[in-house]
């Protein structure tokens, strides 16, 4: 049958007028929300920097200020719970600004009928994590919604830290030639959560990588390493973080896929489900852009901390690119473009 005989074509799906799940996936739909709704309305120079947190001048010091909401299901998972996650997440966002985390707020949206002993457990987990991280939860809020209007509980934490970096840490500071370091294996948190939801018909021994990243970052900064940018690899994973930074810095990043570590258990789950680990969420991994000459020193400092013990170089910043570009060299040395996902990654059918 020749192509001219076809009358079939597919109409354009209507532009989305309501929030879809994909808007929360960290990919292109999330960016559309920010770029089309929030950013134009709230626009100001501090917000427009679009970093993990805002950098606020305060007397002769600078403060980092960041906020994040946590809606993870299930509330308890191997390697953590919504409480520890809500502390680590915001602490890590502050660390990625080059700040020492200091104070956190915690707001709770509780669903009618939620068990108090669960709340007690989560609160204690938050305090344990806060103490271990060296910060204090200094203010908070509580709201209750009708049964069926929340998923047990949601937590929002906001945090303040003091910038300790001598160099401005921002996408705009990334320079051609910079080495790109990755602090360990990727994909464990995302796959652990998938498995913990009980939706997979197989069991895993996976544990989330949920961890405090402020210590290795502060160690780098205290050693005077010329760190140009930091980014934790939460929703959307390594690929999304790299693409975002390339777009903001207008540079081409070349990654070497062979040097990106993926645990065998994560890789197996991904192969089975048709997921790409480059796009899977982490809660204890970050990428770090350092001056190439300081790469080895930075790696050895990061490797001396348990949470970043497997740090190694995964790529290089190349030349200017008007829209930003991330390419990855695969096992057969062919180079391909990494593209931001629309919304969430979907398991393939076969």
């Amino acid at each position: 049958m020749a192509s001219s005989e076809f009358t079939w074509s597919c109409s354009v799906p209507n532009a989305t007028k309501v929030i879809q799940m994909g808007h929360g996936g960290g990919g292109r739909l999330t960016h559309q929300l920010i770029d089309r709704i929030f950013q134009p309305v709230f626009s100001n120079p501090l917000l427009n920097a679009q970093h993990d947190g805002a950098i606020l001048p305060f007397g002769n010091i600078e403060l980092a200020f960041s906020t994040d909401s946590y809606v993870v299901q299930p509330l308890f998972f191997p390697g953590g719970d919504i409480g520890s996650l809500s502390i680590h997440g915001t602490v890590n966002d502050l660390a990625m600004c080059g700040a020492k985390p200091l104070y956190l707020s915690a707001s709770f949206i509780l669903e009618e009928g939620f068990a108090l002993d669960q709340l007690q457990k989560i609160t204690e987990s938050m305090q344990r994590t806060a103490l271990a991280t060296g910060i204090n939860i200094v203010t908070g809020d509580t709201k209750v919604v009708d049964r069926g209007h929340g998923d047990g509980l949601y937590i929002t934490t906001s945090g303040i830290g003091q910038i300790v970096s001598k160099f401005p840490i921002s996408p705009m500071s990334i320079q051609p030639g910079d080495a790109i370091l990755l602090s360990g294996d990727i994909g464990r948190h995302g796959v652990t959560i998938l498995a913990a939801r009980g939706q997979l018909s197989f069991e895993t021994d996976l544990i989330s990588d949920c961890a405090d990243l402020s210590r290795p970052v502060l160690a780098l900064l205290q050693a005077g390493i010329e760190v140009h940018c930091l980014r934790d690899l939460t929703r959307g994973g390594l690929a999304t973080a790299a693409i975002e930074l390339s777009q903001k810095s207008h540079l081409h990043f070349l990654l070497d896929e062979k040097s990106i570590e993926v645990g065998e258990d994560v890789q197996s789950c991904c192969e089975l489900l048709g997921l790409n680990p480059l796009y899977i969420a982490n809660e204890g991994r970050f990428i770090c852009f350092v001056k190439a000459e300081e790469c080895e020193k930075a790696i050895s400092i990061l490797q001396s901390h348990p949470v970043s013990a497997r740090t190694h170089r995964i790529g290089t910043v190349r030349e200017h690119h008007p829209n930003g570009l991330v390419t990855a060299k695969g096992i057969f040395n062919s180079e391909k473009v990494l593209d931001m996902l629309s919304g969430e990654q979907l398991p393939r059918i076969c």
């Binding site: 597919c10 799906p13 209507n14 879809q20 799940m21 919304g343 398991p347 393939r348 059918i349």
Partner: peptide, 17 residues
């Protein structure tokens, strides 16, 4: 349904919508 069916356009909508 399986995940990758969610965004397949019908004549006007998809399953996510």
């Amino acid at each position: 349904t399986f995940g990758d069916m969610m965004r397949v356009p019908g004549s006007r909508y998809d399953l996510w919508t």
